[in-house]
Design a protein around this nucleic acid. Structure first.
Lengths: 205, 205
DNA sequence: CCTACCGATCGGTAGG
DNA sequence: CCTACCGATCGGTAGG
């Protein structure tokens, strides 16, 4: 009790800080080598810990993978989704902000291999299991955020005539994922610019 | 010389047939577990061979990976590119046929994990080396095929007013890659239908 | 193409 | 959180 009095609300214990630093490194490694390619020994070396130290935190490789996915989700929410929601009202401007936020997130290389969820969706797409399901859940939530914004835009009368919100949200999501792959594969920043042009034209902004 | 007289042109020797069967299985495994996840031992079990039998064919894991990429390219050319070129003249119809051929190829699950080059582009995007470079080369050739068809369509006056061929080819390529990821991740055939709608509208066909 | 083997690394555990 | 260890599997080789 006395010990806990020295912590302000929102501060992290030493163990929590260590855990967060491990997971940040794990997410970085996973965008380069995949979640299956992530090894306990490699992560131990990268964080300066022992393997068994990591097992003390996570118990198993699968638990580490799941915790890494959670950490990547927190990062994605903070870097992409939250700024778009805070800076715009529901509708076309928010849809645009979500797309631009994603492209900026890729361009800034928040993770060295690009978007964590594009890489792991491609990696785990046909590998059933709990990690697949978690990645698929968060991918659906991202698609859901695009769809919600598109529907609000439609309800606001902000979409071009004849544009269906579900179709639009799908096309934007697929474009962003495809752009991430091409950008990283060819270290080609032009792809991000082309995606911005596509988005602006589709939204007539 | 006498031995070779029993082979017609285009026939394969026993060693060549074995090699082709190994690489077909390797490409299948790689679309599920990745080219790095492809192990010599696992491939040996899947093909009923010994590990050293595989080394006799390929020499090293990297050579096996490169040979697998080549085999996947042959499959992609045969399944997607060649039919589009044979069935259409240069221009908008060919661009449409390339896109539809890709979607059909994903839908038919020629490989269990979807398009080999989408999976490996995402996997190797930020892992430099000869295998990355080969995958990137063939991805560029695919983009080039889309671009060539789009330019011919523009020259034919078959594109909607104000549509730039390079921009169009980029958008279609990104859409197809993104569609592959979503389709496989969620086992969702609706995504392919949405992609077809998007393509038809973009090409006004 | 095979058996038999190599050192290194894998995920994971015992015991502290 | 550590050292020290486990069996299994990794990529690769020797010798045939």
């Amino acid at each position: 009790m006395l010990g806990s009095m020295s912590m302000d609300v929102g501060e992290l214990t030493k163990g929590e800080r260590t855990r967060a630093a491990i997971l940040h490194e794990a997410a970085r490694l996973a965008t380069v080598g995949g979640l299956e390619g992530l090894s306990i020994g490699g992560l131990a070396k990268a964080t300066g810990m022992s393997k068994s130290g990591l097992y003390a935190h996570f118990g198993s490789k699968e638990e580490l993978q799941l915790a890494t996915v959670e950490a990547a989700r927190v990062s994605f929410m903070k870097e992409v989704v939250a700024p778009a929601i805070q800076s715009t009202g529901a509708g076309r401007a928010r849809l645009r902000a979500l797309c631009d936020g994603f492209l900026s997130y890729v361009e800034r290389r928040v993770f060295p291999g690009g978007c964590f969820f594009v890489v792991t969706s491609a990696e785990l797409g046909s590998r059933p299991g709990p990690v697949h399901d978690r990645v698929a859940l968060y991918q659906r939530q991202w698609s859901g955020a695009l769809l919600e914004a598109a529907r609000a835009a439609g309800a606001n009368g902000e979409l071009p005539a004849g544009v269906d919100a579900e179709q639009l949200a799908f096309e934007l999501g697929a474009l962003l994922a495809g752009t991430n792959i091409v950008t990283v594969l060819h270290s080609d920043a032009d792809a991000v610019e082309r995606a911005r042009v596509a988005i602006a034209r589709r939204l007539e902004i």
